[in-house]
């Protein structure tokens, strides 16, 4: 019990005495994970939309595959990206191993399946409702997909948040491809892992509370936005 109280005290001290190092770590966490969500959306959303409105051979298999990939272990993704970006690997000449860019790539790979699979589900449900009406109005597939995305935008926002949560919370991938370099690739989760291995459990847990607080804040904002929109747009 005492260590739990110590953790909350540590969390409070961290927030109250917001020092530059912590700000930098939190900032990098947000920057990396938000970038990953954005890029993953650029790939995952069109993919999800295409699967939702198109009928093609192997579609069902693709859906099963995407659903399975949602459970991809971060360490495996990290290792894969590490081997790709390592100097001895095929993309080694880029020289981006142990940079935030490498972390963005790993997290992007991790959440593309989440965004694709969940948006596919949302858009397909909407498609069932809209299908005849949109075709009657003369919408082609691409038009229809864009309309569905726009009309389900608040549900899709929740999906993006799920992706962000997964990205911000994972440690395995960023640890491997980022290297947890102080001041360069150290993010919240790798800091937590580091403090844990130093045996400073209250500080680690305190950082964890700050992380959860951040994710909570983002989700609350999104929930409010959604609530507001629901009332406004029906």
């Amino acid at each position: 019990m005492t260590s739990l109280w110590e953790a909350f005290a540590a969390a409070w001290a961290l927030i109250a005495g917001f020092d530059a190092t912590l700000a930098q770590i939190v900032g990098l966490s947000l920057q990396v994970s938000l970038s990953a969500v954005l890029i993953a959306t650029c790939f995952g959303l069109p993919l999800g939309a295409a699967i939702a409105v198109e009928r093609f051979a192997g579609r069902q298999a693709l859906i099963v595959l995407l659903n399975a990939l949602m459970g991809l272990p971060p360490v495996v993704v990290g290792l894969l990206v590490y081997l790709l970006l390592s100097r001895a690997g095929p993309l080694g000449s880029l020289g981006i191993l142990f940079t935030p860019t490498a972390m963005v790539i790993a997290q992007t790979l991790l959440i593309v399946p989440i965004i694709a699979a969940l948006s596919r589900q949302t858009l397909e449900d909407a498609w069932r409702e809209y299908d005849e009406q949109l075709r009657s109005l003369g919408a082609r597939r691409l038009n229809a997909a864009m309309t569905l995305i726009w009309d389900t935008r608040f549900s899709l926002l929740t999906i993006l948040l799920a992706g962000f949560g997964r990205a911000a919370a994972e440690v395995g991938a960023v640890m491997i491809v980022g290297g947890n370099i102080d001041g360069v690739t150290r993010v919240m989760t790798t800091t937590i892992a580091l403090e844990t291995s130093k045996g400073d459990l209250p500080l680690a847990l305190g950082l964890g509370i700050v992380l959860i607080g951040l994710v909570l804040l983002l989700n609350t904002a999104a929930a409010l936005l959604r609530e507001l929109a629901q009332r406004r747009y029906g």
């Binding site: 970038s35 890029i39 963005v104």
Partner: peptide
Amino acid sequence: GLFLGLALLGLAQAPA
């Protein structure tokens, strides 16, 4: 969105 994403990716590389 794609351009924004690429811009952000560039941003992520900025410290490096």
